[in-house]
Write a protein that binds this DNA or RNA. Structure first.
Lengths: 212, 212
DNA sequence: GTCTATAATCCGATAGAC
DNA sequence: GTCTATCGGATTATAGAC
């Protein structure tokens, strides 16, 4: 029966989301499944292969959050939609974001499976496409696309890491606000002069709102 | 003899820098010291107390890298000096930066020692002072100081995390360049209009340099 | 202050019976 | 396919001799 393999995988994802990478063990997985540990080795070569599947599921979920933005009508809408998808994902699934940023050595693997590397390449391509079409639409500066992408990536990733580390005191809703407000300011440096005017207007509006 | 305690601490820092947090064990520490594990428990209550001292040393070193910038003459020089100190620290001491961003639960502690919390508060105060005096000097926008600080913090931390994860392909020197170039763009959004002109001039100069 | 010996838990993985 | 039994290793930490 091949359904058993899928039952193990489903249970493995659940276990990882509950206890994290360091707490994830074959013995606990067996206990949750209601079997003994050696049984799992009939379906998987070892812990490494199971974790590979968990990592695969993380990438699948992340991709679905991002790629939903492709249904939006304009480059700007797709860019904003992708940003909101990213924000929703990291807030709702911190463990899955975590395993995607865990070194392969810590996962006990020598190298990433080819299909996971392909998914990573697809995600990177997705972001580069958003940057490219926002440049064509006159929203982002027509310059070094890689550098523009890095600046936005680093800001977003840093915000998320600091939030997950507990460096921001507020609630989840307050973090979402902070993420967007900070993102607006960061964007000013990579936007065209015309679009920067609109972004700065948002900043001013926020300031006057706070005064009321 | 109290010198033994200091010898253990020195060796503990060395061991942590070599093998990281997960590889750090009392047995390895004892082996490096040339004694057996139970001996260490005459000087320390347990692994948690030793790691607390390692974390303390990390904060001391980080602070020394930052606070050296206080010798600079102007607010802008102090700000740039602090940024360069930060960059030097994270490049030269990734493990120490790492333990400073490790949750206390992962360190096996219930709460941070009061003096370490005080050092963290001092570092945060240092950055807020840099922001405050750069606002007074007409370099940064006169707005929400906390938000300006968060934007810069997130960008810097994100750049470092991605670098340490191996997400940037280049050399260390190329990363230092990337950090500064990306930082310049990020700064445009939090700078005054006057200072943003200077920052954008740097961006243009870089672009024309690349064309040659 | 350091040692030996050991308790008490964990872990991944395998052999071989059923 | 699952089980029992086990190997071989890791860890923190303690008891008690010297």
């Amino acid at each position: 029966m091949n359904g058993q393999r899928e039952r193990i995988l489903s249970c493995a994802c659940e276990l990882y989301l509950k206890v994290g990478l360091d707490g994830f063990s074959m013995r606990k997985l067996a206990r949750d499944l209601g079997v003994t540990a050696p049984s799992i080795y009939r379906h998987f070569e070892g812990r490494e292969e199971v974790l590979g599947e968990v990592l695969r599921e993380a990438h699948r979920t992340f991709s679905s959050y991002l790629f939903a933005a492709l249904n939006e009508p304009t480059p700007l809408d797709r860019f904003i939609g992708a940003g909101e998808g990213y924000l929703n994902f990291v807030v709702q699934h911190p463990r899955w974001y975590g395993i995607m940023h865990t070194g392969i050595d810590h996962l006990g693997m020598g190298a990433l499976p080819a299909d996971i590397e392909a998914m990573q390449a697809g995600i990177q391509q997705f972001w580069m496409d958003r940057v490219r079409e926002c440049i064509q639409a006159g929203i982002l500066k027509d310059g070094d696309r890689e550098l523009i992408s890095v600046t936005m990536w680093a800001h977003a990733h840093g915000m998320v890491q600091l939030y997950h580390e507990g460096c921001f005191p507020g609630t989840e809703a307050e973090f979402r606000m902070l993420f967007k407000q900070s993102g607006t300011r960061m964007m000013v440096g990579v936007a065209t002069d015309d679009f920067a005017v609109q972004l700065n207007q948002i900043v001013v509006d926020e300031a006057t709102q706070l005064q009321d």
